[in-house]
Simulated scan of single mutants.
Amino acid sequence: MGRTRRGAAGLVVFAVAGLAGPAACTGGDGDVYRRGGGDAKASSRPSPSPDPLPRTPPPPAHQAVRSAEEACDFTEPFEAGKVKAYLPGGPAYKGPGPHPAVLFKDDIAVDESEPPQLPGDWTAAFATDDTRLVVCQYDDRDHPSRKVGTCTYLGGSHNSGDGEYDVQSARYVFRVFEAATGEQVTEFALDGTTTPEETCPDSALYPAQDFQLVTSDALADELRPFVTGRR
């Protein structure tokens, strides 16, 4: 069965009144020339001396960066032919690692501070211009979710005071693409393994449900040969 994204039910039922408090969980100079004057006097004057210092070359043009939706194709069903190069004309994915990477997640309500995250030394050193890999996380909607715990929120229920909702198991598909070309490098699936305490956000819209997440360590272990190895 497909899984509902975080907080989707609350957006419909209690979008205003359902915002709850703390959780208690259980489970981006050309050349210059000079022209002499038109009169004879001006033309008899000595030419100006060359510039004493060499000219500084212009910085490279900023490279176009595509959106997460274009670089990953988060539409359903996934179609590899729709994936576009995240950094067209960027550095090729070859040579010794590390190969800087960026991570995008298929979740409209994702909190960027929650796991998984890439190690800090795997990200591009300057903006996105050095990115070589794009890692895309997709919900595996064919995974049969089951209840693994609950989240409880003070004042979360509009009618009864406190609100409680389920934490469900989940699996995620990861696809890795070369940033310069959009070509797929690898694909794998990982189960969410965070405990209910690690899964429940600090606040939520109620009623809702939440899903276990992949840990940063588990994702790093799977990606390490592609990011740090030689190509």
Rank of each mutant, 00 (worst) to 15 (best):
A8I: 14
A8G: 07
G10Y: 04
V12A: 13
F14P: 00
G18I: 11
G18A: 08
G21Y: 02
R34N: 10
G37R: 10
K41Q: 12
S43R: 15
R45Q: 15
S49V: 12
D51C: 13
P52Y: 01
P54T: 10
R55L: 11
P58T: 04
H62P: 15
R66V: 02
R66T: 03
S67V: 05
E70Q: 14
A71R: 03
C72E: 00
D73R: 01
D73H: 03
E76C: 00
P77K: 02
A80T: 03
K84S: 10
G90Y: 07
A92P: 08
Y93G: 05
Y93L: 03
G95P: 09
P100Y: 02
P100S: 02
K105H: 10
D106A: 14
V110W: 14
E112M: 12
E114C: 05
E114S: 15
P116S: 03
Q117F: 00
Q117L: 13
G120R: 08
D121Y: 11
D121L: 06
A124R: 07
A124Q: 07
A125R: 14
T131C: 05
Y138L: 02
R141H: 14
D142I: 00
H143V: 04
P144Q: 09
S145H: 12
K147F: 02
C151S: 04
G156D: 07
N159R: 08
S160H: 10
Q168K: 13
A170S: 14
R171L: 07
R175S: 00
E178N: 09
T181F: 06
T181W: 07
G182W: 02
V185H: 07
E187R: 15
E187F: 00
A189N: 10
A189D: 13
L190S: 05
G192Q: 04
T194Y: 08
T195R: 12
E197N: 11
E197K: 15
E198S: 10
C200D: 04
P201R: 05
P201N: 07
S203K: 09
A208H: 09
Q212F: 09
D217K: 12
A218E: 15
F226D: 03
V227T: 10
T228M: 14
